[in-house]
């Protein structure tokens, strides 16, 4: 199955959006340690920026960068949101309150606790009425989202916005699921080529486990990849940044591999280098 990438974003420590991350991912500049970004998610109305969780703002931030970069109309794009652990700050507050005798929880807190909070806020911010799928698949969430997005683009013939994101849980939940860093990525995927595509992706699902999943050369980026499901996308993002034909192997649930042959698109080189 062939897909085209018409927009890309990433957010993580030392990876502040695509423009600031491309050279690092391409190996042209070293990765430098940095604080966790504090995205504003400026697409959200000001009151929603205040009320939404940091997780929602990370997801919206990468989604809006992709839509702006691709000059796409968000109302015409279906979306696939993937998060392993979802709204952990909200869940921590809910469970803390439910452990008190009063069990008084605020209605806002409750409807912010759903796994599809980011998708819902994206819809509200853009006015999009297109389908939005929100999924979870533990450390394979990004890979599952690639399958869902690819199937959607292929069968429904719509551009698909894929957004994968997870932030470290607050204590005490962190001890149950020590996700690292904070990481978000977004891709705009289409079934047919368009002007200024960044890459062509050729997807194959395989149960040949003889070769390991693709890792990152830089041990610090490799640690990031291992520490957060959304960062499992890093080898794919790096292949797109490098603009060289590359075969990327993503691990899917220990039983499968998603093989993605990344092929550069000539028309995109200029766009990609403009950082």
């Amino acid at each position: 199955m062939t897909l085209y990438v018409s927009g890309i974003s990433t957010l993580g420590p030392g990876l502040p959006g695509w423009a600031g991350s491309r050279a690092v991912l391409a190996g042209e500049r070293p990765w430098c340690e940095a604080d966790r970004p504090r995205p504003s998610a400026s697409l959200l109305p000001p009151n929603e920026q205040r009320r939404s969780s940091e997780t929602v703002r990370w997801a919206v931030e990468v989604a809006q960068e992709v839509i702006q970069q691709a000059k796409a109309d968000a109302r015409e794009v279906v979306s696939v949101f993937a998060s392993s652990d979802g709204e952990t700050v909200v869940l921590d507050r809910l469970c803390t309150e439910l452990a008190t005798p009063q069990r008084t929880i605020s209605p806002t807190l409750f409807h912010h606790s759903v796994h599809n909070a980011a998708s819902g806020y994206w819809g509200i911010a853009t006015g999009s009425q297109q389908s939005s799928t929100v999924l979870a698949c533990y450390d394979s969430s990004f890979c599952a989202a690639m399958l869902e997005a690819a199937a959607y683009a292929q069968i429904e013939e719509r551009p698909v916005l894929l957004v994968a994101y997870d932030l470290p849980s607050p204590p005490p939940l962190y001890a149950a699921r020590p996700l690292q860093g904070g990481f978000a990525t977004a891709l705009l995927l289409t079934r047919t080529p368009a002007p200024h595509n960044l890459a062509q992706l050729d997807l194959t699902l395989s149960n040949d486990l003889s070769e390991d999943a693709t890792s990152m050369d830089d041990p610090r980026l490799e640690a990031m990849r291992n520490g957060n499901q959304a960062a499992r996308s890093l080898p794919l993002l790096a292949a797109i940044a490098r603009q060289r034909g590359t075969l990327v192997r993503l691990e899917y649930l220990g039983d499968l591999r998603l093989l993605i042959r990344v092929m550069p698109c000539r028309s995109s080189v200029k766009t990609l280098s403009a950082d």
Partner: peptide, 11 residues
């Protein structure tokens, strides 16, 4: 089973 899997969570 060992095929593709996921939980869909849209409330």
């Amino acid at each position: 089973l060992r095929g593709p899997a996921m939980v869909i969570s849209t409330a």
